[in-house]
Amino acid sequence: MNIKEELEKIIYRKDYDLWKFLEKAYEKNIKLDFGHFILLNILIGINELYSKLIEKYGKDKAKEILENSDIFVKNTDFISGEFLKSYINRKSRVAVHNRISDLKKLGFVIESKTGPYGGYKLIDTPEWFKN
């Protein structure tokens, strides 16, 4: 499995209702940019990729593969803030944090780990997103 190819598929996925997403953001007075969608795609897609890798190699090896690809923070299953910021073309992890905060306001359950090895993990999506 080529991780770089998998990432390209993940980043540009379009399998959710964009209008419903925009409607919910409008209701909450959240201004979206493309970075919100890229981060959401990565959070969802990496969870799916991690599950596939676990099935194929087992949990420890799957985690190791994603750590060695600089996707997961060392010794965790959190997606690295450094990794995420590179995909939204920002120099600061604060930009990632702000977009993650917006996604949380929209009902996405995202666990955060702070500090130099900080990262994010998508736990659940809101009902309106699942439909």
Rank of each mutant, 00 (worst) to 15 (best):
G107M: 02
E23P: 04
K130P: 04
K63N: 13
I123H: 08
K14F: 06
I3M: 11
G118D: 05
S51E: 14
G119L: 01
N68W: 12
D70A: 13
K85C: 03
F72C: 08
N29C: 15
K113L: 14
K24Q: 14
D77V: 12
K52H: 05
G118R: 02
F21E: 02
L43V: 03
E67A: 11
A25M: 02
I110A: 05
I88E: 05
S69M: 06
E55G: 13
D124W: 03
R13L: 13
N68Y: 12
I100T: 04
I38F: 09
H36K: 03
K31S: 12
E5T: 11
D77H: 14
L22N: 13
L18R: 08
T76W: 07
K130R: 15
K63S: 13
S101F: 15
D124R: 09
L122F: 03
Y87H: 10
S86C: 10
E127F: 10
G119A: 05
N98H: 14
N47M: 09
I38R: 00
N98Q: 12
N29I: 06
D15W: 01
L22T: 13
I10D: 05
H97A: 11
L66T: 06
A25V: 04
P116K: 08
G58A: 04
L32D: 06
L49T: 00
L18W: 11
K85Q: 12
E27S: 07
L7C: 08
A95N: 15
K9Q: 10
